[in-house]
Design a protein around this nucleic acid. Structure first.
Lengths: 220, 220
DNA sequence: CTGATTTAATTGTCAGACAATCATTGGAAC
DNA sequence: GTTCCAATGATTGTCTGACAATTAAATCAG
């Protein structure tokens, strides 16, 4: 277990599971057995249960009484709901962040450049990485920890789907163009414009996800 | 989180603590001792710990490693952050709910009437009750469970402060007038107008809370 | 092959244990 | 009397083992 460990066992278990889900080693819908993790990680059932509890509250796992927990899977409706919420929150974030970033852009210009560069050479890993940096930069400039936490949770929920989305060059280009437009609006201190672009940006991401095949969604 | 009670022990403990916090029997900042609850409620430590864990994720309690949990207390900045987030979420809720409620108003007219009646006779308990019904009606009409859950959590956080806010007749009147305006916009299927009123409504609530004395806030 | 019944897995909860950490108390030194 | 520090007590973090209740799997009768 080589994560940002606080020394806490529960924390380590939770992080390990989170990572496994993100990497797709634990598929959505898959049931998690307590005894399984006690053996594989050499920790007690109490610790495993507490980790499950925490991750359930985080929305990563789904808890069903007397049945245990499973990796939460989302229906199309769930994703639609999620992107509606995410849109207004990301919009709020960029609205709050704009005046601050306009005054102190920090890494913003470099990140946008890196995004464009990654797009040109088709480096998906770098693209994903810098995309995360772009949004993190905005959220942290918004200076609202609650907002940051909520958005982090929402992003975790779509993390594994996100990868299946950026496949065609067209979508990548459109997405990246929105990044550039948004950065321009931010640096010009046009909060309303930046928010409008962000709303379109999140809407596009949501639409791309809805275009994915049925097999990636639960029935619900 | 007010889930349907499963009769589960952990659930019972969590609900009991939530209720105690809402009623002010457990004051913000107060530390909760595990052994205390095992004795008083006749349950095991594991159950208490799991309940703590759940409530921490819900934002009701604050967890500090090796120190335990305490009833979370909020600084003015925390409350400002919270109301910023709440505003956009409640705004989204009413925007989504408006077309549905315009088509099928359900109890909306009666609730608004009951609010006005409670205001006239100065019945604070009824006022609070119908206020909750008003907002619940909107959120459930929005048909977005994720949004509903997030708003529920945010409301829990301010529940105990809310009571200290509605003291002067002026604020009560203004608040209630917003309810009436919002209902009118909803029934006229004017989603944008309804959302605008909601934003003002939440902003007013936030301002009233900021007017409360320092003693009700943590330092931060 | 289907359905019912027995068997095995798994969860929910409890009790008790012990080391690690935090909080408090009571000096000892200044 | 105040300040620092060690001894003491309280509390948390984690583990082990246990057992009833519930769910899932296997078995067998038809």
């Amino acid at each position: 277990m080589a994560e940002t460990s606080t020394g806490s066992t529960v924390q380590a278990v939770a992080e390990s599971i989170t990572e496994a889900v993100r990497q797709g080693q634990l598929a959505p819908g898959q049931r998690l057995i307590e005894a399984d993790f006690t053996r594989r990680m050499g920790v007690s059932r109490s610790s495993v249960r507490e980790a499950f509890q925490r991750l359930t509250a985080d929305g990563l796992l789904l808890f069903i009484p007397n049945k245990g927990v499973m990796v939460r899977q989302y229906s199309r409706k769930d994703m639609q709901d999620l992107f509606q919420v995410r849109a207004v929150l990301e919009g709020l974030a960029v609205r709050l962040a704009t005046p601050r970033l306009a005054a102190a852009p920090g890494d913003l210009p470099q990140v946008v450049e890196a995004l464009t560069a990654a797009e040109l050479i088709g480096d998906m890993v770098a693209l994903s990485e810098h995309n995360r940096r772009f949004h993190d930069l905005i959220v942290s400039a918004a200076d609202n920890p609650l907002l940051a936490q909520q958005l982090e949770r929402l992003r975790n929920s779509v993390y594994w789907l996100q990868f299946r989305v950026l496949i065609d060059r067209e979508s990548i280009y459109r997405t990246n163009q929105q990044h550039r437009d948004m950065a321009a609006a931010i640096l010009a201190n046009q909060a309303t414009d930046a928010e409008a672009v962000m709303l379109a940006h999140v809407a596009l991401a949501g639409a791309l996800i809805q275009n994915l095949p049925d097999t990636l969604f639960s029935a619900g």
